[in-house]
Simulated scan of single mutants.
Amino acid sequence: MKKVAINEQELAERWGLSPKTLQRWRSEGRGPRYLKLSKRVTYLVEEIQAFEMESMHSATWEKGSDVVLSKDPNLMSAKEIAEVMNLPMYILTHPNMRESLGIPFLHVGKLIRFKLDEIKAWMLRCSAEMEAHGIEVPKDPRSQRRTLLEALARLPA
């Protein structure tokens, strides 16, 4: 009879890891999906095999932290968004600035990426809010590079 699931110790032996490593991975949300019933942790063999297949690499550059091949072609870097939308790059790269302005972003591995349509929608919302508060917003954002940021700074707290 073929095994459907294996326990933590068996998986640790299979991969040459410590069971503590698997425990740490679970707490970090890494590794294969697992099943936990009471205190017993088991891993389905098909989940293990799927995780092993995803972990296969044909070149070392594939696992580099600055190379992320996303399945979404609409994701753009801060530099690309800054150039396309004529925004100062630091509002996209500084975490506190992104959070305070409510700029939509995604984590892709260790990288921050943006969707152009979400940034456009965010800019439209900001422009509408500024106009509602009586702050003049030029219709052509390329006419002045920092106009949007200056207008955001003048918003009442």
Rank of each mutant, 00 (worst) to 15 (best):
R146K: 09
F114K: 00
P88E: 03
K36P: 02
K120A: 03
I6E: 06
P32D: 10
A5P: 04
P32M: 13
L106W: 03
E54K: 10
D117H: 04
L149H: 06
L111R: 12
A153R: 15
A121D: 07
N74M: 12
A78F: 04
I81D: 03
I135M: 06
E83M: 08
K36M: 11
G64K: 10
L101C: 04
E10P: 03
D117F: 02
P95A: 05
R40T: 14
V68R: 14
A132R: 11
V68H: 08
R125Y: 02
K63I: 13
K20T: 10
N7K: 14
E150Y: 09
P73Q: 04
A5F: 12
H94Q: 13
W61Q: 05
A78L: 07
P95W: 03
C126E: 09
E10L: 08
N7Q: 10
S18Y: 04
M56H: 08
K3F: 11
I48W: 01
M89R: 15
E129Q: 12
L92I: 05
E10S: 09
P73W: 04
A153N: 13
E80L: 07
L35R: 13
E99Q: 11
P138D: 06
N96E: 15
G134I: 09
A5D: 08
G29R: 08
P73M: 05
N96W: 07
P95I: 03
E99Y: 06
T21Y: 02
L155R: 15
I91P: 00
I6W: 01
I6Y: 02
M85Q: 12
S58M: 09
G29M: 10
L37N: 10
V84W: 06
L35C: 11
V137Q: 02
E47P: 01
Q23G: 08
P32N: 11
W61A: 05
A82L: 10
R146N: 14
V137K: 04
G31F: 05
R154K: 15
G102F: 06
L22K: 03
L11I: 07
E8G: 08
H94P: 01
E118R: 06
L92K: 01
I103W: 01
D72R: 04
Y90W: 12
K115S: 02
T93I: 08
L111V: 02
Y43P: 07
V108I: 09
R142T: 15
R98F: 05
N96G: 14
S100F: 06
K110F: 08
S127M: 09
M53Y: 03
A157S: 14
M1R: 10
I48Q: 03
H107W: 00
Q144D: 10
V68G: 00
W25C: 05
S65D: 12
L35N: 10
M85R: 12
R142Y: 11
S38E: 14
